[in-house]
């Protein structure tokens, strides 16, 4: 099949650019640790309230400026619905759903993940600026979806 010389140039440059995208993303994710949330931990979605750590959702201090936030998502809210941490804290959010699929997003950060019943998902972020961060559900979950939010206060 004959290709016009210009088309060869265009397709070669285009293909190389796409390959560069793949390499940049691959290095950033696999070598520098910027992986998207892909937790593999399973849980019985009907027994979330009896399964540790989600029987007692809340903030747990792991070390200096290092926290785990074990949270549950449900129609139409999160538990806990307010978290306070000191500035420059690193928080790992471990979240699971007690009912349907939810989202977990903190606008202005890269924290954004799907919360699927039967699975735990997690994301880690370091908060370097003080402020009141909105945690919101970005996956349609029912009649009160637009009200589903929580607050993270960084002091």
């Amino acid at each position: 099949m004959h290709l016009h010389r210009y088309e060869k140039i265009w397709l070669t440059v285009g293909l190389l650019t796409l390959i560069v995208f793949i390499i940049v993303l691959g290095i950033n994710a696999f070598a520098m640790g910027a992986q998207p949330p892909s937790d593999a931990q399973v849980i019985d979605p009907t027994k979330v309230s009896q399964t540790p750590p989600f029987d007692q959702p809340g903030l747990k201090q792991l070390g200096n400026n290092n926290y785990a936030a074990d949270m549950t998502a449900f129609v139409f809210g999160y538990a806990p619905n307010r978290i306070e941490i000191p500035v420059r804290s690193t928080v790992t959010f471990n979240v699971t759903s007690k009912d349907v699929v939810h989202g977990f997003e903190i606008p202005g950060t890269d924290v954004n993940m799907m919360i699927v019943p039967g699975l735990v998902n997690s994301a880690t972020h370091t908060f370097t600026k003080p402020g009141d961060y909105l945690i919101l559900c970005n996956e349609y979950c029912g009649a009160g979806h637009q009200l589903m939010a929580a607050h993270l206060v960084v002091k």
Partner: peptide, 13 residues
């Protein structure tokens, strides 16, 4: 489904 739990990173990639 890039931000979903339960799918291994290599398969997503």
């Amino acid at each position: 489904q890039l931000l979903e739990p339960g799918i291994p990173p290599l398969w997503k990639f």
